[in-house]
Design a protein around this nucleic acid. Structure first.
Lengths: 229, 229
DNA sequence: ATTAACAGTGAACATATGTTTACTGAACGA
DNA sequence: TCGTTCAGTAAACATATGTTCACTGTTAAT
């Protein structure tokens, strides 16, 4: 979408504070999205947010909203996409340092926890709106989560992890893991800061739950395919 | 709280349509709660509900609200309690026909599904507000769910199910099961009626997830207690 | 039979909301 | 350089909200 400048960029194109018009637009769009997330992270659900409220938080006049979204649902869908991107990015980073040595599960969980802290608002949104609020964004969110599950399953297959599982079962497993992940997310994000004990306990619990799940996966035996009687 | 009548009840006390004043009050209170649930089951989050909206749906004038709750949060907490009761009741019924024969998991899931259908709105509320919306009702809801988990763990112990697990691990397991249960709930409740295939698929998936979890529990080995070095 | 209690009413308030309409002025393409 | 585009503004609208207050009429207690 960004226009390509034909005859050489003017000097102040990349200096901070100034920007091309499209960039400015994208910036206020982003601040609208951030405003929504920020309001939600103060303990509100998406459906309870008002248009004026968001523009106020973003520091623009209400009418500006319509230059970017012509609906609250549309903004919601944009948030879903942003959240989905955050999820995928996590996988991408995980792929980089794939060093499966030592206590894999615990290490993964700690990395996840750090990632959670860096993307608080996104995860609050995902965990919070996954089963509540507006049907349209709920469905969109589920699609994103399913995508994530699928990608994760492919990764496990690629790493030759649990090779005895069928693709369907791998998918099942990943779904379970992701649910557990997101539940843990909303628990962890709810702990007031400066309570490392509680947090530690939640993390330990999370680790054990995952262990139990993978133990189940290790001992899983694929049922024989239905005989076409 | 219900007053006890001293000198013999008047004749129309138990006839339908008439009622003592306290009963009437309880009735409109209930219709306020139902109105809230009903609005939520049309795809709204609790925090997005307005006082007037609820009273309108309940068929009373807005001011009547204050005769029952002096806050929306208070109504929310009442809903939490109602939902918690629904959960416990489920366990109580399950305790009655404890016939652990055949495919226990599948049978339990089918019973659960039926119960879901009979308590749609309660489960929508629980699943929807468990990680979204107002912090105060979220916490209250988690307490109820924890109570449920605890009761379930006690039941399993009583039935001598998985006796090799420590109490803590049993609790862990039940937590996992309940999370999976509630996630499945919001999935199942979202299927449009008259789509038995989709529903069947969700149920099958749910069954397999539980199987995997219990498989993990069967093969779980309690780690030796930390040596106080 | 009198009286007090009190669940539900109705009107009014200050404020909030979503949306429309016409406008401003800086960045842009020619 | 000049005219156009268009992100953000400002004022006004109809309508919604939460809360208050004084009231009514039935029910319950004396």
């Amino acid at each position: 979408m960004t226009r390509i400048r034909r005859h050489g960029a003017s000097r102040r194109d990349e200096t901070a504070g100034f920007a091309t018009r499209d960039e400015r637009k994208l910036r206020t769009r982003a601040s609208l999205l951030d405003a929504a997330l920020s309001l939600m992270s103060q303990g509100r659900s998406f459906t309870s947010l008002g248009l004026r409220e968001i523009t106020r938080e973003a520091g623009v006049v209400p009418t500006s909203f319509y230059r970017h979204f012509h609906d609250m649902d549309e903004l919601g869908l944009a948030l879903v996409e942003e959240g989905g991107l955050a999820l995928r990015q996590m996988l991408r980073e995980a792929r980089k340092d794939a060093a499966p040595v030592g206590d894999v599960i615990r290490r993964s969980v700690l990395i996840y926890k750090q990632y959670l802290g860096e993307h608080r608002m996104n995860f609050m949104f995902i965990a919070g709106e996954r089963s509540g609020g507006s049907p349209v964004i709920r469905h969109a969110l589920r699609n994103q989560v399913n995508l994530f599950v699928q990608e994760m399953a492919q990764d496990l297959r690629r790493l030759n992890f649990l090779p005895h599982l069928s693709t369907a079962t791998l998918h099942l497993l990943c779904g379970l893991v992701v649910n557990t992940m997101l539940n843990a997310a909303s628990d962890i994000l709810d702990t007031p800061p400066g309570e490392p004990r509680l947090e530690q306990e939640l993390v330990d619990n999370f680790v054990r739950q995952l262990r139990l799940i993978f133990l189940g996966a290790l001992n899983w035996k694929e049922p024989p395919p239905k005989p076409a009687h």
